[in-house]
Design a protein around this nucleic acid. Sequence first.
DNA 1: GATGAATGAGCCTTCATTCAT
DNA 2: CATGAATGAAGGCTCATTCAT
Lengths: 221, 221, 221, 221
Amino acid sequence: MSQAAEGRPGTKARNRRVAGADPEKRRQILDGAQAIFHAQGFDAASMNEIAAAAGVSKGTLYVYFEDKEHLFVALIEREREKHRQHMDDALAEHPDLSQALAGFGVNLVRLLTDPFSLSAHRIVLGVAERMPDLGRAFFERGPLLGGQRLAAFLNDRISAGDVAIEDTTLAAGQFIDLCQSTLLRPRLFNAERRPPTDAEITHVVDAAVAMFLARYARPVG
Amino acid sequence: MSQAAEGRPGTKARNRRVAGADPEKRRQILDGAQAIFHAQGFDAASMNEIAAAAGVSKGTLYVYFEDKEHLFVALIEREREKHRQHMDDALAEHPDLSQALAGFGVNLVRLLTDPFSLSAHRIVLGVAERMPDLGRAFFERGPLLGGQRLAAFLNDRISAGDVAIEDTTLAAGQFIDLCQSTLLRPRLFNAERRPPTDAEITHVVDAAVAMFLARYARPVG
Amino acid sequence: MSQAAEGRPGTKARNRRVAGADPEKRRQILDGAQAIFHAQGFDAASMNEIAAAAGVSKGTLYVYFEDKEHLFVALIEREREKHRQHMDDALAEHPDLSQALAGFGVNLVRLLTDPFSLSAHRIVLGVAERMPDLGRAFFERGPLLGGQRLAAFLNDRISAGDVAIEDTTLAAGQFIDLCQSTLLRPRLFNAERRPPTDAEITHVVDAAVAMFLARYARPVG
Amino acid sequence: MSQAAEGRPGTKARNRRVAGADPEKRRQILDGAQAIFHAQGFDAASMNEIAAAAGVSKGTLYVYFEDKEHLFVALIEREREKHRQHMDDALAEHPDLSQALAGFGVNLVRLLTDPFSLSAHRIVLGVAERMPDLGRAFFERGPLLGGQRLAAFLNDRISAGDVAIEDTTLAAGQFIDLCQSTLLRPRLFNAERRPPTDAEITHVVDAAVAMFLARYARPVG
DNA sequence: GATGAATGAGCCTTCATTCAT
DNA sequence: CATGAATGAAGGCTCATTCAT
């Protein structure tokens, strides 16, 4: 019987029971945690609220996650995962350098100014003093990784003769920061709640590309 | 009324006192609050610890500050005040454009990567969701103001014919972000605890100036 | 009723089963419960741990035992049963009075200072306030019964003219307590973890016999 | 004003305030703790109930005692203190050996069969597995100490030529245990709730003295 | 019958805030 | 005004017990 069920597509996938292994319920809990953590921050969020938001009992939270901190870390990991998938291949699309950079920049800004992303940043930064490992992990697998990818892309373009850059790590960081200028900071501080319009994003990213190329583009001819 | 009281004989000598008006004790409390808030973050800091660190009683805290949040806001304001004084005149010192920018940049990076500053940033960002007013105030009187000053400086230089810039607000933001590239973010996330060396700062700021001028410097002609 | 069910065809083969009737599994559960209760005490022992130690699921525990308390009582009963079997015939072995008493005493002390026995005592005493029935049952079927047997034995010896005792119940109690002097109490309080050596036991029991006979032995002649 | 109050006898003694130092409130809390711990045992007693029984808030409990365990230990210490005072000088009163022993025995039995004492014994034994230090402390400062005092007394009487004893430690233990025979155990197990009558106590203690002297008294001659 | 995920009451403890002294 | 003992709501977490599978 269970053999038949196993193979059937569309069947609810909870054949084998393992402690805290129902992925559906796990997702449900993370959804509730997301709602509460993002609205309240780490400390102000209570496990009670999270359980209510997730539609499970408090005890169930502890079946799926060791404690509040582990739940929070799992949530952050899930959100980063989404981001990574979103950013992949942003650079490879356009053969033209300025278009590739612009595409990358627009993608990046959209990502970073997304309310969830902003909120996650705020929370991680808020606990970074007490939970340095989380801060480091978030940084290394997020911003640092993004910078490394862009740096690798720039190295390719150096080889291709498109640009002349000595410190590609710095150059990548520069471009990334330029793309966010005037857009990210006010939102991170919650001084501006409205996401940037496409026009605003384009304006800033175009300016970033222009500046970047003014400095690093190899003179043609 | 308080004037009348003043003259009355037999009154205790310290009659003109207003609630929480002893500036020395106020400073003392803020010093204690700084130590605890920076070490623990907003939520994890307890009023008990702060009172102990300040060497006053818990009750006294509430004479000088309405509640924990107001105490925290007052602390942040005091720290911002220090920063402002530090940044003033950084731009006016050098008549030479690139030197003025470099001086501003170095000052800025030193300021932002100072452990206290990093810690204040983290805490404010951590509570920005729940305390948007604090986030906004911190942004407006800090980063935004800094940008506006640099923008004003750039406008002067436009008039002087040194640079050609259309959007000075954006340009100021760009320069500020370029100065921090690769230096601020790892420290904000606590992935790097060591403050940047002078050489590192110079390297990044020089690159920022170079890029900025490559884009905006008016060709001497 | 269960007879009718028995004959019905198509019924699952294991129909005569009554709730919690598999004696093997029952033993298995009690073994696990023994390990956990003795190591942790009644309150600190968790049904989870017991289920794990027994190698059954938590639900199964409740098939065999109504609740935690009933499980504990069943465990205590089982352990008492072992003791009873051990003590039986200890008195009948030796025709000589002092040898019979000494044999009984040594047996008794060995039994009472056994780690399991000590632990069971502690737990039962610890819950005796809340569970008076358990305390009473443990006492009546344990220490009281032992005393009664010894008293009966003494009555026989009175008839035989070996001893002269007015209050045999008291005399039996006295002998039992003398045998434990300085040996049981420190172990019950966990102030001494090492079981008494044979020499220690013999020393105390011999002293008990000597004292007992000094008081009650009929002068020969 | 406070000067006057200070000197006056009968004034409530709370002049200086120290954290958790109001002895009146401390006593009040211990009284509440006694009521609840003795009725429920250590684990089943809740800090909530204790606070209610003591007529203070839950928080106040933690001003006076670090945690549940420390509160419990303090309670046990207080009760032991009462006992010690009660037992002191019990031996010194009578110059006659058998009267001294009988007085000691009666005192001892009254003490040990007091409901509070029984309850304290039960609780300490109940947690002795998990809190061996408490068990050891209770034993050493209680039963062990009592035995040592009696042993010292017996040594005096050996010197005086009243008794001939080789192992006074054992002899002291024997006498103590004889005094409790048939009286303590049923009450410890809660199988008998009625305290022993004076007649019962005298009966058992007299029998203990008789047995003790039959064994150890030096033949007059 | 056996399983173990789910429940939710309840536990110990903390802490911002108040208020009698 | 300064003090710090007292408050009590709320927090994170555990665990005996139930019940759908």
